[in-house]
């Protein structure tokens, strides 16, 4: 069963000149996939991710996550849905600056009313997984960009989501940090079967993705499955 399925998905931004950001996109993403959505700026990558993530609504067409039609959910139901099913990693990390790495990771689990024991166990494991076990009490401003993005990955995984959506996760990172983050994401995908869908410009990321979907003017112009390098 597909974890994400879109059918004739369209999104038009109204304005003086209406812009069709997503144009008739039919897409299926299976469990355990490590998929990169690529394309030039303005090709509709972020808009597609936003619609898949339930952050934005399509103008027409449908998007299903685990067979749930997102169009049928109200705004409040979408918030609950995101909390339960989707992990987000943003380009500029977007951590809560007043919380430590541990508290940032724990935050989503608190919103889910997870028990203290489960929280402690999972947060420790996740921060260890992303190699930040010695930075648990550091606040975002005390961490490098790469470290912050690793906390963001840990946070995205804390809620045990069905998949993680990452919008240009390596865009603000130096090459070493980007490699490091990519290693972590790939390992989580392989060993724990976590589905990653991310938009990127970064050729190193594209090279390591197993599936590469290329968008241009909102349309899928290629969908390639490649061997891992």
């Amino acid at each position: 069963m597909s974890v994400i399925e879109t059918n004739k998905l369209c999104k038009t931004f109204e304005g003086v000149v209406p812009v069709k950001a997503v144009d008739n996109v039919d897409l299926k993403i299976e469990n355990d996939e490590f998929t990169a959505i690529v394309g030039p700026s303005g090709s509709g990558k972020t808009t597609l991710l936003n619609i898949i993530g339930g952050l934005d609504r399509p103008t027409s067409g449908s998007v299903k996550v685990n067979d749930i039609e997102l169009n049928n959910l109200s705004d409040n139901e979408l918030i609950k849905f995101r909390l339960k099913h989707i992990g987000f990693v943003f380009q500029s990390y977007n951590l809560i600056p007043v919380l430590t790495a541990r508290e940032n990771t724990e935050f989503v689990m608190l919103l889910q009313n997870t028990t203290v024991e489960e929280r402690n166990e999972r947060v420790d494991a996740l921060l260890k997984e992303v190699g930040l076990e010695d930075k648990v009490n550091s606040r975002p401003l005390e961490l490098s960009g790469g470290q912050q993005q690793r906390v963001a990955v840990a946070r995205a995984l804390a809620s045990k989501p069905d998949f993680v959506l990452a919008d240009e996760p390596t865009a603000n990172l130096d090459s070493k940090s980007a490699e490091n983050l990519l290693d972590i994401m790939l390992r989580l995908n392989k060993e724990e079967g976590i589905t990653f869908v991310f938009s990127t410009h970064d050729q190193r990321v594209i090279d390591r993705a197993r599936r590469v979907i290329t968008l241009e003017d909102g349309k899928i112009i290629s969908d390639i499955t490649q061997n891992e390098n």
């Binding site: 918030i79 609950k80 995101r82 909390l83 600056p97 935050f107 989503v108």
Partner: peptide, 16 residues
């Protein structure tokens, strides 16, 4: 604004 938007994105309900 951005931070609050992020909180709502990751699932923080409006009442919260």
């Amino acid at each position: 604004v951005k931070e609050i938007g992020m909180l709502m994105s990751i699932g923080m309900s409006k009442p919260k």
